[in-house]
Design a protein around this nucleic acid. Structure first.
Length: 927
RNA sequence: GAGCGAUUGGCGCAGCUGGUAGCGCGCUUCCCUGACACGGAAGAGGUCGCUGGUUCGAGUCCAGUAUCGCUCACCA
């Protein structure tokens, strides 16, 4: 700082300052200008060290953006603008997550179509016209090929995406709109398929035929990350199994409809009640199936009767027992959630007849009723079912409890099961994958830091690998085919893999190399994998998608690994974790250095805002009503990781601040170009000046419209003191933003700005108006402060600050350098910030006199005595002329030492002219 | 059941490495002062959830406890 060569003095030319300032219309005005001038365009000639790259969350395209989006995206934008002003070349893309179930459902309803995998692609397909709001019943939906369906998805989401972009532009996100992607576009599909194939080649992706959680509504397997435990009412049924001697063994179950699928009864090995039964068999009620009584440590003696019925499969504990005790498989629940239509082979006699007659093809709900009735009739039900409330796993988007069915699925290793990777070059590591991923979590910077525990909880608690295959249509296809053997059987164990150069591929409509389409589904031919990947399997690759992985090596080297992932706290276990997994497996590094986690928006009742509650405000309406700067101010007032209330009051404060910025700037600039210049009060010319603004303006035109931001011109102690305070603010704001604490930065900047307006501006006003030598000091200090304060506020208030910048500076403020304290400290010349504080207190004391006397502030004070703590006396004395002018003190103003008090107070009172006091206001009692 | 946050004037929040509380809104009173009435001035209002402990001294550190929120686990 000390050795710096004096920077050239900035000379600004004031072009035009509007007569009336306004925030209205700034959003569209500057969106157009920024677009035209490419203000936020990414310069890809910059090196990795110069680049700050952001892995922007792609919002779900099929739906609408809500206040929560505005909130969290503003956080990112504030940071992006800060980094840009700090000189970084910011890579700030925007994606649209149009891949997956939400889009699929929306397209299905919007166009009234459904996918039929057997149909060929029809290039001339025209979707049916569905009137707005009409819902086409599934039976009436037009079947289309998957490729046609995907085209419709792309068409519809393109419209949504246009609207989203409009909103983001209006909000002022400094995104480079040339850097956009969709999670279903060809590049994303290529990246997703390529990454999958590489996982496959390295043994990190595998398929397995296994029992897993299944949603019967969407008829797809779901992953652990998509589960949601919800309260679900049920009943305990006390049911008798029979031992060899016909004595009853009571179990308790909430799912009696699974009795036909029972494979064992299980109790804890130490449970003395059941120890005699271990190794024996018992008969199931109604069906008379003999099942063993077994011991397993996972059985809990306190739960229910202490002995559990193990069925294939009622829950994940059943799966565990089935696996560890090597039990047979007796599945009766089908993929549609109904009991199988054929009588299971292990049933016979009366049991088989009962099944055929009363249970086959029933939903679990009706089957349960049938079985309970039958148990009651047979005397195997002890007492009546007792209601209970339990937690059950649901698919987060579903509304029926998940069932467990056995199916062939694809998995990617994520540490949920023990796995050791091949030693990797960089570390030579052969540690367990879970440990490696936990280490990655420790390596990643979380803002705020406590969000890390969510990662650790999740990664540490995984109990299975990541299931990525979905039995859906709109998604990235799993890029595989399987040979069909001569027998007609499909050889899943030996998938046919496409060449990476051919990606993306759709195995349901394209034949693998060396095969002809005519060989599809015939012996000696092939079948295509029908499943798609889950949407997270694509979005876990966003850093690779945006950075041109395997497509644009030059770009990749400048962007990846990235600097920041901003995202919501709710998807740490999904998006954040899965991205770390993919990056770790593919690139052996973290995908980004840090993750900024935004909180929720709560409505005033402290409930999470949600559509279903009908309390969602449309963001565009909000922006139009309050102005984007105001809404951004509200968002920026909440710290990362903290939930915030939806608070329009805060937006009004933001608007007030933005308006104040315009007005204060207008004043500073006007006064600098002499537009407001006027003779000192009391001089003969003063009387002539009351004519009005026209005359004043004419005076102003005498001066040059050029302002020199020259620290050497700041000579008065009060002015220097103000700049010293601002220097501290710059340092504090910079430090806060470096720590991703945008709230703190805003707070200190804003507080200073108000002090600047309320105290400093008022104190120096008279001097700055005048043509005295000290006026130049005030004017220059005002201009220097304005220049710095505008830049401090620019990340939060991009529109108001850009407006003001345009009045007197060239280029965009958003490409201007972030302020440093050097120049300010130079101008302050060692004067302490406390001087302004003391003078401000002195002024406040004078104001208080008038306020207490209930007179207007322009009332002259005839004499006053200020008691000031001794250390502050020199500063106040130095600013005496300003204090007298601002306080309109016309008579003597005495300063005396008041060691007891830290604030200046008035002693002895003041005198204001009698006539100014007027009649004391009549005190009428209030109702 | 485990973990993580939060608990400060009516409301929304700050209080960094401990020294007897700050801001904004709202409220009261006053002022249309030539940057701004989308403004300005001055006020009233809190023993910082509770209980202990460390310390000369604790919203600030430690232990426990309560309430709220979230995350994970919990389907017999």
């Amino acid at each position: 700082m000390s050795e710096n060569v004096a920077a050239p003095v900035i000379k600004a030319t004031v072009r035009e300052v509007p007569e009336r300032v306004s925030l209205d219309g700034l959003e569209n005005k500057f969106d157009a200008r920024w677009r035209q001038e490419g203000t936020y365009a990414f310069d890809r000639s910059k090196t990795r060290e110069q680049v700050y790259s952001i892995d922007t969350p792609p919002p779900t395209a099929s739906g609408s953006l809500h206040v929560g989006h505005v909130f969290s995206y503003t956080h990112t934008d504030v940071l992006a603008r800060y980094k840009r002003m700090r000189g970084a070349e910011v890579f700030y893309p925007m994606g649209w997550d149009d891949n997956g179930l939400p889009t699929e459902r929306r397209v299905q309803n919007y166009y009234g179509v459904k996918v039929d995998l057997t149909l060929p692609y029809d290039p001339d397909f025209v979707p049916p016209q569905v009137p707005d709001g009409k819902v086409v019943k599934p039976a009436d939906q037009v079947p289309v090929s998957r490729r046609n369906f995907i085209e419709l998805c792309e068409r519809l989401t393109a419209e949504d995406e246009k609207q989203f972009e409009e909103l983001w532009r209006y909000l002022g996100l400094s995104v480079d709109w040339a850097q956009t992607y969709q999670t279903i576009d060809a590049n994303s599909r290529s990246v997703a398929q390529r990454a999958f194939l590489r996982n496959l080649a390295r043994g990190e992706a595998y398929q397995a035929e296994a029992p897993g959680l299944w949603d019967v509504t969407f008829q797809t397997a779901v992953a652990q990350a998509e589960l949601e435990a919800r309260d679900y009412p049920g009943h305990f049924h006390k049911v008798a199994f029979r031992a060899a001697d016909d004595s009853p063994i009571f179990i308790e179950t909430t799912r009696p409809e699974l009795i036909p699928a029972v494979v064992a009864l299980i109790a804890h090995p130490d449970d003395e009640r059941y120890q005699p039964l271990f190794g024996t068999t018992v008969r199931s009620p109604l069906f008379g199936v003999e099942v063993p009584v077994l011991a397993h440590a996972a059985a809990e003696p306190e739960k229910g009767a202490g002995i559990a019925m193990c069925c294939t499969f009622g829950d994940l504990t059943d799966v565990q027992w089935w696996r560890e005790l090597d039990l047979p498989t007796r599945s009766i629940i089908q993929r549609d959630g109904r009991l199988s239509r054929e009588v299971p082979q292990w049933l016979n006699g009366d049991g088989a007849a009962f099944y055929a007659e009363s249970l086959a093809g029933k939903t679990t709900f009706s089957a349960r009723k049938e079985i309970v009735d039958a148990l009651r009739a047979s005397g195997d039900l002890d007492g009546e079912p007792t209601p209970t409330q339990r937690k059950t796993n649901f698919f987060e988007k579903g509304d029926k409890p998940l069932e467990i069915v056995t199916s062939r699925q694809w998995y990617i290793r994520n540490g949920g099961r023990p796995f050791t990777r091949r030693p990797v070059a960089s570390t030579g590591s052969t540690s367990d994958l879970k440990d490696e991923l936990l280490a990655r979590g420790r390596e990643l910077a979380f803002y705020p830091d406590f969000m890390r525990v969510r990662y650790e909880n999740w990664a540490g608690g995984l109990n299975g690998d990541w299931l990525i295959s979905r039995q859906r249509f709109f998604g990235v296809a799993i890029p595989l085919w399987y040979p069909v053997l001569a027998s007609g059987e499909v050889d899943y164990a030996n998938p046919i893999v496409p060449d990476e150069a051919a990606l993306p591929v759709d195995p349901t409509s394209q034949a693998p190399a060396d095969y002809a389409e005519g060989q599809r589904g015939v012996p000696g031919g092939f079948v295509g994998e029908a499943d798609v990947m889950d949407t997270w399997a694509t979005s876990s690759l966003t850093p690779l998608i945006v950075s041109g992985w395997e497509r644009d090596a030059d770009l990749f080297a400048r962007i990846y690994p990235m600097d920041l992932r901003p995202q919501g706290q709710d998807i740490i276990r999904t998006w954040l974790f899965s991205t770390v997994v993919r990056s770790h497996l593919e690139n052996d590094c973290l995908p980004w250095a840090g993750a900024a986690i935004s909180g929720w928006i709560l409505d005033p009742d402290r409930k999470k805002m949600s559509k279903s509650k009908g309390n969602v405000v449309t963001p565009m309406g909000l922006l139009e009503q309050h102005g984007s700067d105001a809404v951004r101010y509200w968002a920026a007032s909440a710290r990362l990781g903290t939930d915030a209330a939806f608070d329009e009051g805060q937006m009004k404060i933001g608007r007030r601040l933005a308006t104040k910025v315009l007005n204060a700037a207008k004043f500073v600039l006007d006064i600098n170009v002499g537009r407001l210049e006027r003779p000192l009060a009391g001089s003969p010319e003063a009387k002539a000046d009351v004519v009005g603004s026209k005359a004043t303006e004419q005076i102003g035109t005498q001066d040059s419209p050029t302002i020199a931001l020259d620290p050497a011109l700041v000579t008065e102690p009060l002015d220097r003191s103000m700049l010293a305070g601002l220097a501290d603010v710059v340092d504090a704001a910079t430090k806060a933003l470096e720590a991703y604490d945008h709230t703190r930065a805003l707070e200190v900047s804003e507080a200073f700005f108000w002090t600047f307006c309320d105290d400093y501006l008022e104190l120096v006003k008279e001097r700055a108006y005048s043509s005295t030598p000290a006026a130049a000091s005030a004017r220059t200090a005002l201009a220097i402060a304005l220049d710095v304060m505008l830049r401090l506020l620019a990340p939060v208030l991009p529109f108001a600050t850009e407006e003001v910048w345009g009045w007197w500076r060239d280029g965009s403020i958003h490409r201007a350098p972030w302020p440093t304290s050097d120049l300010l400290r130079e101008a302050a010349g060692g004067v302490a910030p406390a001087g302004l504080t003391a003078a401000g207190h002195a002024l406040a004391a004078l104001r208080k006199l008038k306020s207490v006397a209930k007179v207007t502030m322009k009332t002259p004070i005839l004499h006053a005595t200020l008691a000031i703590p001794a250390p502050a006396i020199p500063a106040v004395a130095a600013a005496m002329a300003d204090i007298r002018a601002a306080g309109k003190v016309e008579g003597p103003l005495m300063l005396i030492d008041a060691p007891e008090s830290f604030d200046p107070t008035v002693q002895g009172g003041i005198t204001v002219p009698e006539h100014e006091l007027g009649e004391p206001p009549a005190k009428t009692p209030r109702a």
